[in-house]
């Protein structure tokens, strides 16, 4: 009797030990790293929703990184329906030279000068929310943009009382964007353009518009971009059209080349939102490009 108790106790002990050995060796066959346990998921910010800080004309959700200067040259040639005589618009060109600078990772400022109506512009862009996954989930990114422009071309009616304030234009824009996948991003840009002086009483000083833009990546370094800016009715002169642009981005190291077709001549908000006159159906379309070159002024 005593023997059997002893024996069964021993048996149980052996089984227990066997069991522990088996479990240990089973664990060993697994990933050694799994012994460290599940690491807490960290918040992962979404990067590169767009290749650069413009979709085509519209500001994209991207900010210039802190300490980085982005030198931008943009051209819009004449209209394609100018025909062979104007080499499909290449004889004329409107341009903007500008710089964007990242003061911090959430604040970008920019300055530029457009040949079209000799206009100077300046802007501030603030990042409020960033799309992220992991611990903190944020479905989209949000930025605010505020810009002003000074038209310095001589007044068309010099005999009239002209005020400096009549040269000023202001733009306020919210930028909502989401990178749906590696290759596909969408953006919405509700916009208000305020014009101090308009031509007729029928035209509104405040113009409300909704910009929409997206990109589809073709490869790691190229993408197709498009944008459309819808103007609410009865705000602008009847010949003003909604801006529509379609383009192609190529990124090569520190440069981004953007080639596109657009019915807007101007490359700043007050112009392409509220003054686009080209009709796509008539071929009133400009070929154009933006070239961006970044310089890292301050290293992290």
């Amino acid at each position: 009797m005593n023997y059997w108790i002893k024996c069964s106790r021993f048996f149980c002990l052996s089984i227990l030990m066997m069991g522990s050995i088996i479990s240990v060796s089973a664990q060993e066959e697994d990933d050694l790293l799994s012994l460290l346990g599940d690491t807490e998921p960290e918040t992962e910010l979404v990067y590169a929703t767009f290749k650069t800080s413009r979709i085509i004309n519209l500001q994209s959700i991207e900010n210039t990184a802190a300490g980085v200067l982005d030198f931008k040259i943009a051209h819009r040639f004449g209209v394609l329906n100018g025909g062979f005589y104007d080499l499909f618009g290449l004889d004329q060109a409107s341009m903007r030279i500008g710089v964007d600078y990242g003061l911090t990772r959430w604040l970008t400022i920019g300055l530029g000068r457009s040949s079209f109506e000799k206009t100077y512009d300046g802007f501030t862009k603030i990042k409020l929310l960033r799309q992220s996954t992991g611990k903190k989930k944020m479905p989209l990114s949000l930025s605010l943009f505020a810009g002003s422009a000074i038209k310095t071309v001589a007044f068309s009616e010099p005999e009239r009382d002209n005020y400096f304030s009549s040269r000023m234009y202001y733009t306020y824009q919210g930028i909502l964007a989401r990178k749906f996948s590696e290759g596909f991003s969408l953006q919405l840009s509700p916009t208000v353009v305020h014009r101090n002086l308009v031509k007729t009483k029928a035209e509104k000083n405040d113009v409300y518009a909704l910009g929409m833009g997206g990109r589809l990546k073709l490869s790691k370094r190229t993408s197709i971009n498009a944008e459309y800016i819808y103007l609410a009715p009865n705000q602008v002169a009847p010949d003003i059209k909604n801006s529509f642009s379609i383009g192609f981005d190529i990124e090569t190291g520190g440069h981004v080349f953007q080639l596109h077709f657009t019915n807007s001549t101007s490359m700043i908000e007050k112009g392409f939102v509220s003054e686009s006159v080209g009709n796509w159906l008539d071929g009133d379309v400009h070929f154009g490009f933006n070239v961006s070159r970044v310089f890292t002024l301050k290293k992290k």
Partner: peptide
Amino acid sequence: FAFTKALMQEHFNEN
């Protein structure tokens, strides 16, 4: 991985 140049880091991850 952290780089001194922000764009380099983006390209490293993206491209």
